[in-house]
Design a protein around this nucleic acid. Structure first.
Length: 864
RNA sequence: GCCGGGGUGUUGGAACUAGGGAGACAAUAUGGACUUAAAAUCCAUUGGGCGUAAGCCCGUGCGGGUUCGAAUCCCGCCCCCGGCACCA
């Protein structure tokens, strides 16, 4: 590598990558006395397409931070692994007939090669793979612990079912109500699914956000997703006009039936003129016999069942409903008779599946009342209810003894009144739902549970021996955990991974696997055939990096204590709700059972923007606009690629790929090579060619002789701070400026300036700087890497300018500038300003009313 | 509808944390040097307008305000991106 020579990036990058690996430069040391820094990137989901430039963006950027921290003396853990289970691999397997295990092997090799070609400083000795049985043993183990603690339960819930592919679909696979793959309309089907009680952690997941450093918008998304609201659950007694109050087959009188309604606006209770129930509401099925217009109601329910979730929530803007004739409820605050409706705009799974209709003070209720001719009764003053609903707070009217109160106060008082009279309870509701944990697919972790009919019967009948069962077993009679010593429960090798006609997982086909014996009583039992979702393995992977080979526990507690929490976690914006929430949930659970030492996994979370294609669209195989990292690395080299990805724009913003800007980066690095090799006399191989850099050096601008040192200190400060704040683009810009200035002042360079340039650049440009470092220090052994050098420090005093250009303003407008020393005082500055000819012409004949002086910056003369 | 982020040259963007020189750093384009030529490299110009020039005026989505001074702060509005969405 010399000026004039073509720089052979391939040769040099490979050379150093090999040396670094041999030196074990990036191995993190457990229990080192140096301060630890755990830097984490979201591990890639394996696909046959290989590494995408989007991966490269965050990996290079975080690599720069990791490298800088090492140079600053930190013991850095920057690990990598593979998110390997999941649908895309399974679909590819179905299409090609190659087994997912084989596909995964191939993809791992591909990703590993590509990542290594970028010169990323991962600690490869800690590599993990979620589809590896020694890894998913612990995924299963965590699940069993949750089962044991009663956090896992079976529920019959609707799933998206594609009748063409005969497969259950995840919500993400349903596009506009149709199957993503075949385009056929998706149906709703009830299916038994394992659920995890994340709702039990809702409050803590919300509250603990206060103590951690997540990007504001990420926190906002989590808060929104959890959706906490305080209110009161009001009990409305059900009455019937019909004398037949006793239903056959049930002893309880209809009069005892109560509909519970959740509201955040107890202050509007006196304005209730109807109740609306979700079509799935229990009361409707229970009391259908009492309904006079039974046929009409049944027809409505049938129609709404046909609608997909999509139609019910997206298309159907207008609210519909049917009155339940012959029944009514009693409003507990004023004992009024209130009609009951059913309407499919009411969400069955939230707040008990029933809402009270207060047309005067809720937009939806207003529209509903207008459509069906319900009374609109004003109970909060402040709006004009003849025109629209008044939804703000105000003073209560028409509200009995609560009239005259302000809404906020009324909410509290009415809530308490209801509680005192046992007509309601103050409550907190969450939008967050429990997590559907079952997948009817092959390529995932088998759920390690067994169903035993014998045990089920025992639990139902023998309540006395209840102590012998775990909470999970009691909650799910007959279900047993696979014993811990039998973990991992390995995924059996099958030939066909196609889901079955019935919607069961392909594992259901393998009778020798399904049929087993109960680990508790030894009788015949059947295995669960569902597998875990893709999220399962990625929920806790960062823990396994800390102790990847441990076969006794998921990770050694002392090691966890040393490394946790993760200091910086970076990933895509698309994972900031679900992945982050699920992962925090599991972590909190592990904390509760004493497996991990912290209640939060990630101290700081940042997200990177997507890299879009040149056309501004998302990169996608179907558009044919995907850019593979190999192409860029082959043409320009890893260093150019890395700097380009960091320079292209603000890290957290989406940005389109622009091949022209890459050239600018390539030119910049060429300049760095040239100036380094041209200046240092000891690099004998090229001293004769040093003049190959035609620089505008000779006419270095006047008055700027000794400011190179100052610029150096400023640059160190800027690059250090920008890296900490993840402002990679401006850090690179500062390095470009510094380099340009070194070129302009080519005759006056000291070795220190060049060394600093290389050290500052090293985290961004590891290969070139390492090579140049050894060129300017020819006696240095190859083992003495630049990355073992110390990160340069700066001197604030030296970074400060001695001279400034004082800005002279008149009435706030810049009229002149003049060079002077930086610590000039107001009086002198004033004199200096008044001396300027230009200024004199401006103030001639005018009176100076006021002078504003900002030290080291400007003076402003205020005139008439 | 709600929440979050944003709107600056031809383009990506900088300056926004704390009000003080708008356009750093790149890219693009044009002209020039070198070359038989091209590429590469180097030099100059590159927000708009007026002016021979010195220089002046305008300009950070729109309209107002605060201030000696606003891209930055406040109020109202428009538009774009991301997320959530009949959550009572």
């Amino acid at each position: 590598m010399a000026v004039g020579d073509k720089y052979n990036h391939q040769k040099i990058e490979q050379k150093w990558q090999k040396i670094w690996e041999e030196l074990g430069l990036y191995k993190a040391q457990d229990f080192s006395k140096r301060p630890k820094s755990y830097i984490l990137i979201e591990f890639p989901y394996l696909s046959g397409d290989g590494l995408h430039v989007g991966h490269g963006r965050s990996y290079s950027a975080l690599d720069a931070i990791a490298r800088k921290r090492r140079m600053q003396g930190y013991n850095v853990l920057y690990p990598i692994g593979w998110d390997a289970f999941g649908l895309p691999t399974e679909n590819y397997a179905i299409k090609t007939g190659i087994h997912p295990i084989e596909i995964t092997k191939k993809n791992v090799a591909l990703f590993r090669r590509q990542l290594k070609s970028l010169g990323l400083s991962f600690d490869w000795s800690r590599e993990i793979n979620t589809s590896d049985p020694i890894y998913y043993k612990w995924t299963q183990w965590i699940f069993l612990k949750m089962f044991e603690c009663g956090l896992a339960y079976l529920a019959e819930i609707p799933i998206n079912w594609c009748p063409e592919c005969k497969i259950g679909l995840a919500n993400e696979e349903v596009i506009g109500g149709n199957c993503e793959r075949c385009g056929k309309e998706v149906e709703r089907r009830q299916q038994k699914q394992w659920m995890l009680k994340i709702t039990a952690y809702a409050d803590r997941l919300l509250k603990d956000l206060d103590g951690i450093d997540y990007l504001e918008k990420i926190k906002a998304q989590q808060v929104h997703w959890i959706g906490r609201s305080e209110g009161v659950t009001v009990k409305f007694k059900v009455k019937s006009f019909s004398p037949r109050l006793i239903r056959p087959g049930r002893k309880k009188s209809k009069v005892d039936e109560v509909v519970e309604v959740f509201t955040t606006r107890a202050d509007t209770l006196f304005g209730v003129t109807a109740l609306v129930l979700a079509p799935e509401h229990r009361l409707i099925t229970d009391c259908l016999s009492l309904v006079e217009n039974r046929k009409e109601v049944e027809e409505y329910i049938k129609q709404s069942k046909k609608k997909s979730e999509f139609e019910r929530t997206e298309l159907e803007k207008e609210k519909t409903g049917v009155l339940l004739k012959g029944m009514y409820v009693i409003n507990p605050v004023n004992n009024e008779k209130v009609p009951i409706w059913i309407g499919d705009y009411v969400v069955a799974t939230y707040g008990g599946g029933a809402v009270m209709v207060v047309p005067a003070h809720d937009k939806r209720d207003y529209a509903f009342a207008k459509k069906y001719g319900l009374e609109i009764r004003e109970v909060v003053k402040g709006g004009d209810i003849s025109k629209e609903a008044f939804v703000d707070y105000g003073i209560l009217i028409n509200s009995g003894k609560f009239s005259g109160l302000e809404s906020k106060e009324a909410i509290k008082k009415i809530g308490k009144w209801l509680e005192r009279h046992k007509k309601g309870e103050q409550e907190v509701q969450y939008k967050l739902r429990d997590w559907v944990f079952s997948r009817q697919h092959y390529w995932g972790e088998p759920i390690p549970l067994v169903f035993c009919e014998n045990c089920a019967v025992k639990i139902k009948n023998q309540k006395s021996k209840i102590k012998n069962f775990s909470q999970g077993e009691l909650l799910n009679p007959g279900w047993k955990a696979v014993p811990e010593e039998d973990l991992p429960l390995e995924l059996p090798y099958v030939k066909s991974y196609k889901p079955t006609e019935t919607g069961e997982s392909p594992l259901a086909h393998i009778s020798e696997w399904v049929n087993t014996t109960c680990p508790k009583c030894g009788s015949k039992a059947k295995r669960e055939t569902d597998t875990m979702p893709n999220w399962a393995g990625s929920n806790w992977y960062f823990l396994r990096y800390i102790d990847p080979k441990n076969d006794k526990v998921l990770a050694d507690y002392k090691k966890l204590k040393y490394w946790l929490p993760v200091d910086l976690y970076n990933g895509g914006m698309e994972h900031t709700t679900l992945h982050l929430l699920y992962s925090r949930f599991w972590h909190k659970f592990l904390y509760d059972i004493g497996v991990v030492p912290t209640s939060e996994p990630y101290k700081r979370r940042r997200s990177h923007g997507m890299v879009l294609a040149e056309d501004g669209r998302k990169m996608s195989k179907s558009f044919g606009n995907v850019i593979n990292t190999d192409d860029i690395v082959n043409t320009f080299g890893a260093d150019v690629f890395r700097v380009y990805e960091m320079f292209m724009g603000p890290f957290d913003q989406a940005i389109a790929w622009n091949p022209k800007t890459i050239l600018g980066v390539d030119r910049f690095l060429a300049k760095v090579r040239n100036i380094t090799l041209g200046v240092i006399p000891s690099s004998s191989t090229l001293s004769s060619r040093a003049s190959g850099v035609p620089m505008k050096s000779e006419q270095a601008s006047e008055g700027r002789d000794d400011n190179l040192e100052q610029l150096m200190h400023q640059t160190i400060k800027k690059v250090s701070e920008d890296l900490d704040n993840m402002k990679f683009n401006t850090a690179v810009a500062a390095l470009m400026e510094y380099t340009n200035e070194l070129i302009t002042q080519y005759g006056k360079l000291k070795t220190e300036y060049i060394e600093t340039l290389l050290l500052l650049l090293a985290p961004f440009v590891p290969h070139i700087t390492e090579e140049l470092w050894h060129r300017i220090h020819p006696k240095l052994s190859e083992k003495r890497s630049i990355f073992k050098e110390q990160w340069p420090g700066y001197n604030l005093r030296l970074a400060k300018s001695k001279e400034i250009e004082l800005v002279i303003q008149i009435n706030g407008k810049v009229r002149d500038k003049t060079r002077t020393n930086a610590d000039i005082l107001e009086k002198q500055a004033e004199k200096l300003a008044l001396k300027q000819k230009k200024i004199q012409t401006y103030i001639k004949g005018k009176k100076i009313k006021k002078i504003i002086f900002i030290k080291g910056k400007l003076i402003n003369l205020v005139i008439d």
